[in-house]
Design a protein around this nucleic acid. Structure first.
Lengths: 348, 348
DNA sequence: TAGCTTCGCCGAACCGGTTCGATGAAGTGA
DNA sequence: TCACTTCATCGAACCGGTTCGGCGAAGCTA
């Protein structure tokens, strides 16, 4: 069923069918009804490929996935969901691009083969060749995250520096003096992941400001690593009374490690960090955290991208979000300074 | 940069360029090198839209999302990830289709506008109009899940009946006599979700077989609902000593509810169910569960779909998986029968 | 009633690839 | 030397839409 068939059955030319359906030129009411009738009878829908070829737009946006890391975190899930939903509202489809092992290849597919009108990038690095590359090509894209040179770009980001600092201040206000920082995996830190770097930065500076004693750790994106990380923390400094985490996937493991070590949260030990709200609520006690507004970020990224697609001359825009810390139940006042032998509390 | 430009610069015709690149007809080594050189210089890649139009294939598969439910669960994330990855290995892109509120519209986009060569459906219902519809059209698709009439279809499913039954037997073997069942949200059960129905079925039958006293509940897909559900369970029958859950998203809440009620897992209360392994490990104690092999299922779904796309006359195939229960730490022998007043253990 | 505008529709070209049949040059055998 | 095959390449048609310029009929003005 193509447009020619419709035209034939309606007794008009192909162009008339096209205009009747698109409304880009006036068509008499009578013909339009006749055409519509045939279209409805045959359930005709114009081919996306043909349309894309003709007018040079695919009505599809690409969602480019982490170039490192082997499985996805809950936060990414929230991004994906909200991007898909927001895109649908604008009548855009979303094409997922793994850009995993073979990053360049799928990138080439998206851009080189012109499968998408624009792209949304996730898991941004401070020096991100993908962002640079797209900027050079002037290819419409919006980053979820902020590189080291964000001035002229389109992005929606989270102020990880401020958020990590807020966590530190929150803990310091509660009287904690020895605090650990649980970052994303070392591999990602080394790769230059924005959140890992800016978060670490904010943590370190704020801790120095408040005169805290700190240690920082990298931790794999899974529960087992989280548990191991806590064990390490308590071994390195048994007097630690709180931690700040950026690592959502390890959260369950962090809690487990603390429980195993006999540290009660929040009585003996406070936990906070930067985590999507939905996941902060799954742990017990619920995590006091700066809630990553993943839903809002995804939606805004799509808004920006659509704006850029509709007005190719629009000046760069961005949103930097700084959500407040949601007080839940995982932090409390630093208690009596733990006795020196408290560190031996690992279970056999 | 189109194929004509390449042809001009290489001093050959457009068709020669096409053949040189596709290899579908022999081209002299000399011309092929000349063409390749021009292609490399200009970084030319053929347009996906034009190619799709010409040969009637988009090299894209659609991943159709739940028609009900407002946010995504971790299991779905695992499916998405593995599908994208497996598809990339076959050089297919993945188009996400929310099919959320306006299910028909995005479905029409995918099929009517021929944006995809085939589709993978998630969150199958026992009577699923999407599946029926696609079967009628003879549109290549694979379901992740199994309808009430799975004989002639392509799908990869989980034997929820057997898995739920296995959970029951596991608990019964441990001596539990009063067991609750925590299902997906009522809305989904009513909509006819396969896993909810088959799981409930397997649970009920196995419990009858073992002569257990049971109660079944529906529970929202979030921690708060899980907590409320446990409270309800212990109110309805304080002597309950175990539960089986299909509801991964509520898991954290279930644990919290038990802790609040003063029930220690697994000493006082056993928890098991059907949950993706990665998520079963995030809770403490780690969940003894039938691990949903989401990664394998996604991969197999893609394998089947590609097979069907390559051989349109292939007979229907499917995989029914029955992963074993992974023994972790959330179940234990039923202890002394709880005293009658144990049910009042909710915190104020 | 001639001349002008407006309206509704048509035909053709175009988007950028693929594919089929044809063509001419080179190679082979009698 | 001629007929026949083989090989490399070309031109044209096609996929299914969109869009532009033009044209005839109807309506309006003088």
């Amino acid at each position: 069923m193509n447009i020619g068939e419709i035209a034939k059955r309606a007794g008009v030319s192909r162009s008339t069918v096209s205009y009747a359906l698109s409304g880009k030129r006036p068509v008499s009411e009578e013909t339009r009804r006749k055409i519509q009738q045939v279209v409805d009878e045959l359930g005709y829908r114009p081919s996306a490929s043909a349309r894309a070829l003709a007018n040079g737009r695919t009505s599809t946006i690409g969602l480019v996935f982490p170039p490192a890391g082997n499985h996805y975190t809950g936060m990414q899930l929230d991004f994906i969901g909200s991007v898909v939903e927001a895109a649908a509202a604008y009548d855009y489809d979303v094409l997922l691009s793994p850009s995993g092992v073979d990053s360049d290849r799928s990138f080439q597919r998206l851009l080189g083969e012109r499968r998408v009108d624009g792209a949304i990038l996730m898991e941004i690095r401070l020096e991100d060749d993908r962002v640079d590359h797209l900027a050079e090509l002037d290819f419409p894209s919006v980053a979820i995250g902020r590189t080291a040179h964000p001035e002229r770009g389109w992005w929606v980001g989270l102020d990880h520096t401020a958020l990590a600092a807020a966590c530190v201040h929150h803990l310091a206000d509660l009287g904690h003096r020895r605090v650990a920082f649980v970052n994303r995996p070392e591999q990602l830190l080394r790769a230059g992941y924005e959140s890992a770097h800016r978060g670490l930065d904010g943590f370190t500076k704020a801790a120095a400001e408040r005169g805290l004693t700190v240690r920082t750790y990298c931790c794999g994106d899974d529960a087992a690593s989280g548990q191991a990380c806590v064990e390490q923390i308590l071994r390195d400094d048994p007097a630690t009374t709180a931690l700040v985490t950026l690592n959502e996937a390890a959260l369950g493991g962090l809690y487990r490690g603390l429980a195993r070590a006999g540290r009660h949260v929040p009585r003996d030990f406070s936990v906070t960090g930067v985590v999507a709200g939905r996941w902060a609520e799954t742990v017990t006690p619920q995590l006091t955290a700066a809630d990553v507004p993943a839903e809002e970020m995804g939606r805004r990224a799509v808004d920006l991208l659509v704006e850029r697609l509709d007005h190719s001359d629009a000046p760069p825009r961005h949103h930097l979000l700084t959500p407040p810390i949601s007080l839940r139940a995982s932090t409390g006042p630093a208690g009596v300074t733990p006795t020196a032998d408290a560190g031996s509390g690992t279970t056999p």
